[in-house]
Design a protein around this nucleic acid. Structure first.
Lengths: 216, 216
DNA sequence: ATAGCTGCCGAACACTTGTTTTGTCAAGTA
DNA sequence: TACTTGACAAAACAAGTGTTCGGCAGCTAT
């Protein structure tokens, strides 16, 4: 009685639904399916949709229009896989970061962040910056990379931070270490030399929590 | 005429739609909104939905049932913003990459890739590997990074490739240059020295097209 | 052969749903 | 004041849409 596999027609219908939802964001109606798949009657579609639901391939929301949804394709699940953060501007070695509070977040371009990089639940206060130039190369960050920062003004030892060196008027990404009376800014690349400076000369502008690099 | 902000009622409607879609995977009908928000008439809902559409907060699919979608929440838009590639394993300096053909892609863990890193249209033949160890650090790639590779056995000059050095039995990520009679493998980090070797000693295993790094 | 089942067909039915129309009312605005 | 506009209300309309029902053909177990 209970089949494991879909019939050809059921497979066609299933594939059609998935593509329809991916393309248009909403479920097809029974008559959409009937028409585009050249099925003779809506009742046949309905019949096979019932089978697909018994197989667990689809979920039918009873009696409501366009009520088919696909487990795994619902916005509910997708929204757990990614988040979005505003791209606030460009980071260069010579100038401080823009103040996140002074920027119209609603109009900033949005960057999609996979949950593998930053879980959506920890996306509060996070923003993105595009790196200009190769001055961050000792932090394993190249020209064109997008860095994800969480705004904070203090840091724990070992955290990678965006540090503004006031006297030098330069922003740099380094690992932060507080050592008796001075600050050590250690490049992520062990072949590079650290910077030593006084706490008064350092303003932490955020902590680096992710990097996205596209070489396409 | 054109407002920047939503009215209270519009904000309520917008929030209701978002929650409805997240919870049920399909859009509410106008009468769902009317009923649950205690609005006197469907025309009021329709009126405010038009306003929301002008504001760009929602998209109405004309004349079809439950045709509201939220930019950034609909599978249609999401599928333009992200793609998925299989995470095929780990890359270390000492062993060649696993053969993508020998792996059961359907069961491999999937990595979400933002369109900013690799456009979904160019995701064919792309796979992901997790980096173990710091041997790739001169390619600006650290332990724990996820590298995205497109399988190919040849490369253009200047492309970043995963190269297997047969005699050394080592895999490394370098920029590829073919120079009269020899191959130059140039680190991405200009402070590092290049490797020179013969073409017979190099097997290209794929081209690096993206990097994801999580420091959370 | 008989009954039962699956899968299908065509048509009709009834509910769902977006849209339109006609007003009302308050707040601006010339 | 007279006019315009935004926001809302009530009702009716016209499609859109899921469901049901009688019937048919092929297959299988009894």
């Amino acid at each position: 009685m209970r089949r494991r596999e879909m019939s050809d027609r059921q497979a066609d219908i299933y594939e059609y639904i998935v593509n329809f939802i991916k393309a248009r964001g909403i479920s097809p109606s029974i008559r959409d399916i009937q028409h585009d798949l050249n099925i003779s009657s809506t009742s046949v579609v309905s019949y096979n949709l019932d089978v697909l639901e018994r197989l667990g391939k689809i979920i039918r929301n009873d009696k409501i229009s366009r009520g088919i949804s696909i487990p795994g394709l619902s916005p509910a699940l997708l929204s757990q896989e990614i988040g979005r953060v505003p791209l606030l501007g460009t980071i260069t070695a010579g100038s401080p970061l823009p103040d996140p509070e002074e920027i119209d977040h609603s109009r900033a371009e949005q960057i999609v962040v996979p949950a593998d990089v930053v879980p959506p639940t920890r996306l509060d206060g996070v923003y993105a910056l595009k790196v200009r130039g190769q001055s961050m190369i000792d932090a394993l960050i190249d020209d064109g990379d997008i860095v994800l920062l969480r705004r904070q003004e203090t840091a724990e030892n070992g955290q990678m931070v965006a540090a503004w060196l006031i006297d030098e008027n330069a922003v740099t990404l380094k690992k932060f270490y507080r050592e008796d009376g001075r600050i050590r800014l250690q490049p992520a690349n062990s072949t590079m030399q650290p910077i030593y400076t006084s706490p008064n000369n350092v303003r932490i502008q955020g902590r680096v929590i992710g990097v996205l690099r596209s070489l396409v």
